[in-house]
Design a protein around this nucleic acid. Sequence first.
DNA 1: GCGACAG
DNA 2: ATCTTGTCGC
Length: 198
Amino acid sequence: MRRLESYLLDFLKLFQGLIAKNIKLEHLDISKVKTLCAVDVAYKGEEGYAVSVKFDGKNYEHYLVKGKVDFPYIPGFLFMREAPIMIKALSKYSCDLVLVDGHGLAHPRKSGIATVIGVLLDIPTIGVAKSRLTGNIVTEGEINYVIVNNEKVGVKSGKYFYSPGNRTDLNDVIELSKKGYPEILKIADRLSKQLKKE
DNA sequence: GCGACAG
DNA sequence: ATCTTGTCGC
């Protein structure tokens, strides 16, 4: 008998395959986004502090959700650990686009946490990660593409990786990456780490 | 078997 | 992600 965890991971891979099959890769004009949101999670032991931030073009708002996070971090399966609490934090707002801390299509099964959240909620998402999970970089002109299985699944700009989650496309992430690391993600990151201490 | 490995 | 002071460098 195999170990129980291997059955779960095999099943989760099937789930990710289903998510990937339901991705809607379509152009969302970033410049037309009126309400931009972002989510990040910080931890204090088993306590997770998820913060969603909303920017309407003028003011920032944020919403905090605290909760126990049991599931361990397993490369390729981050969504099992953070998607549940991130989705709760996002439930507070309605956004034209959500930036998720992590990868989207730049994943072994094209099912990073930004993709899972985007498909489950059927909303536009883009994954912005601070480091590589998989894929190689191929430069074409000014763009550093992230290639997985001979397919362009995202771009690398500076030290960050951008990839479509759902209802967005490669042009959207390229457009976003040109503006540098999103301020709203810095705010979400700072806020989550700050609020967990109070 | 070995190396890689989001947060 | 988190544990953690000072410190090397732009």
